[in-house]
Design a protein around this nucleic acid. Sequence first.
DNA 1: GTGGTCTAGACCACC
DNA 2: GTGGTCTAGACCACA
Lengths: 121, 121, 121, 121
Amino acid sequence: MGWTFDGGRPLYTQLVEQLKAKIVSGEYPPGQRIPPVRELAAEAGVNPNTLQRAFSELEREGLLHAERTSGRFVTEDVSLVEYLRGEMARELADQYLDQTRQLGYSNEQAVELIRRRSEET
Amino acid sequence: MGWTFDGGRPLYTQLVEQLKAKIVSGEYPPGQRIPPVRELAAEAGVNPNTLQRAFSELEREGLLHAERTSGRFVTEDVSLVEYLRGEMARELADQYLDQTRQLGYSNEQAVELIRRRSEET
Amino acid sequence: MGWTFDGGRPLYTQLVEQLKAKIVSGEYPPGQRIPPVRELAAEAGVNPNTLQRAFSELEREGLLHAERTSGRFVTEDVSLVEYLRGEMARELADQYLDQTRQLGYSNEQAVELIRRRSEET
Amino acid sequence: MGWTFDGGRPLYTQLVEQLKAKIVSGEYPPGQRIPPVRELAAEAGVNPNTLQRAFSELEREGLLHAERTSGRFVTEDVSLVEYLRGEMARELADQYLDQTRQLGYSNEQAVELIRRRSEET
DNA sequence: GTGGTCTAGACCACC
DNA sequence: GTGGTCTAGACCACA
């Protein structure tokens, strides 16, 4: 998957989000080595420093760890990855229900809307 | 409904969103006068100028119009309001499907997740 | 001719302009009685006070004069009216040339443009 | 070209107009970086925020885009710039014809007047 | 008293 | 050092 950014939000935040998605979705599976910063930065078209900052954040959360000389690796803690995946999905779902409720839709209508859109796409 | 903001995104952006929600949900019905800038600003706990900026945006979109001396009014174009309501909801739904897909969920799983969360709440 | 206003500029200013146009164009000929404030205000859809203010301005410029009991009249000074007509037109022409020059057009191009538009309309 | 303002109309509006003129006339060519807000504001003698507001408007119209850290740039979409140039000129021409017509001039007289003024200047 | 405009000055995120 | 955001506070035009 490529990289897309919307101006107006910090780049490094968006990088964190997209890297997380790549990890929990299995595009970067547990234990796998991540491409070097410079390479990934070039691919995403961002400043290496900015990507570095995103990595630091992911390391803080335990999803990534840097091996002194051999590069960066995705955590091998599968349950952490799976937990995070579920957590993120639930958050998205609740957020959606919340936002549609603000527009005056009932939960039933919100479910029905998703069902329809999921079939049209 | 009250006013809630999350740091990190411009206040005026969030004001635009919440005002839109109030309009399309019918809390501010078509044709109705909305409270004076200063009053609403005090209620939301923001600077009147910040709110003014949000209003300008809504005026550009045709949802609001300012009467020189008598106040601001919601558009009377009901179909515009209804169109926007559907449009916003569709956008939220698609966004949700998109984001869950990035986490590695199928559309069916995404629908099912919403269904479950909507019953638990 | 009807009355049209664009928000954003003072109403009374626009009234002055349009009244002047009616006078110099001969729609309100020299010496003629002008409709009463209340009537004209209703016709234009403005507050009588606002129209009053526009009249005051025209009186200051000598284009109108109020007869104590019988109403307001257009000046009988034909040469004043004609002078003003030419003056306003020249001003418009110079303004046009000035603005197009700012867009990078030569005077010749500006003339040519007017010629074309005047034939298409 | 310098900066001139007439009181009575919002400063930011006049800034938008003059900036547009600079762009379509080629004084700020497509793709070129424009001076920093603070610098330009000092040059024009206005508050940086006021200029910022004008910039926002031009960004909405797609004539400018802000690069997070490196400055603001004129769009590279030459056809947009050229289209706008013609559009603005046509609008000015029609406006002129309209206003002189209100003064009681025929289109022919209006053309002739421009011709004469353009030679005298 | 309403909205509209403008200024001055500060702080923040980003690279 | 760049643009972006926000606040506080003032003044004006309008009806």
